[in-house]
Nucleic acid binder design. Structure first.
Lengths: 125, 125
DNA sequence: TAGCTTAATGCAACAATGTTGCAAAAGTAA
DNA sequence: TTACTTTTGCAACATTGTTGCATTAAGCTA
C-alpha cells in the first residue's frame, strides 16, 4: 500500500506555487526556495504534485516548462483554458475564465487542449 | 553585404521538411539525413531557414521543438492556425484551415497565438 | 576556369535541463 | 519508540542546444 507523505519541502513548494499569480519554472522555484532541498528533489516533488492533481504543468511557447496551481480543479481536473505568455517579463498566467471555440474538420480525436497567447501582460503594456 | 548561400545540406533539409506531412524535430531530421552534416550544422540551418521564413518552429505540448514547412505563407507570414499533436505516434500536424475564436476580458496585448490540440490523429484513432 | 571573398561547416567544449540508481534520512502508523 | 517505507541527497549520466575558431566551399568577378 503506497501512501503519500507531506514533507517540509513538498509543502513549501506547493504553497509557493499556489500563492504565485504566475506559473513558475523549476529554476524560479529553486531560487525562491534557496537551498531548501536538492535540485533533483524539486523535480521529484513537482512530478508528484502534478500526479496528485495539486498543480499543473504548462509548457510555454518558448519551450520553458512552468508549473501553476490548480485553482478551480477541485471537482473535475480541467485545464482547457487560455494561458497568457508575456514576451517582456516572460510571465505565464492562467486566464481561467476564457474558453476558446474552434471546429475541427477532419476525423481527429481530441482529448486535451493547449492554447497560449503571447504579447504584453497588463503590467508590461 | 551579407548574402545567402544554398548549400547541399540546406537544400536537402529544406526539401525534407517541405515534403513531410508532419513537423519534424532536430533528432528526426538528423536520422533522416543520416550523416549528411554535423549536428550543430543542422541547428544552424534550421535557424537560418526559420529566419528566412521558409519553415516555422513549433514547440509541442511536451516541449519538443519541431519544424514545419510554410505552405501558405507566401505573402504574409501567418502561423495563427491550430496544430494537432498525436499522443500515440507523437506527430505534429498543421491544420492550416482552422482558426479558433476567443475573447480576452482583460487588458492584454496579443501579438501571437499558439494553439495545439492533443489526442489521436486519423491514422492512430 | 581560376582566384578571391566570406558564408557555411566541423569539431571541441560548454551550458542548461532533466533522469536514474542507491544509500541515508525522515514521515507515519503501531 | 520501533518498524516500515517514502522521500531525499549525491553522483553520474542523457539530451538538447550554444559558442569559438580554424577549415571548407559557394558563388561572384576577371
Amino acid at each position: 500500500m503506497k501512501s503519500v507523505r507531506n514533507t517540509t519541502a513538498k509543502t513549501e513548494i506547493q504553497e509557493l506555487i499556489a500563492n504565485s499569480p504566475v506559473a513558475l519554472s523549476h529554476t524560479e522555484i529553486q531560487s525562491a526556495t534557496n537551498g531548501l532541498c536538492d535540485r533533483v528533489t524539486i523535480y521529484r516533488i513537482l512530478e508528484r504534485l502534478t500526479v496528485e492533481g495539486l498543480i499543473h504543468k504548462v509548457v510555454n511557447v518558448d519551450g520553458v516548462v512552468k508549473y501553476a496551481g490548480c485553482h478551480s480543479c477541485s471537482e473535475k481536473h480541467n485545464h482547457n483554458h487560455i494561458h497568457f505568455s508575456c514576451q517582456k517579463c516572460k510571465s505565464v498566467t492562467c486566464l481561467e475564465d476564457v474558453e476558446p471555440s474552434y471546429k475541427l474538420p477532419k476525423k481527429y480525436t481530441v482529448s486535451e487542449m493547449n492554447f497560449t497567447l503571447s504579447g504584453l501582460c497588463p503590467q508590461c503594456s
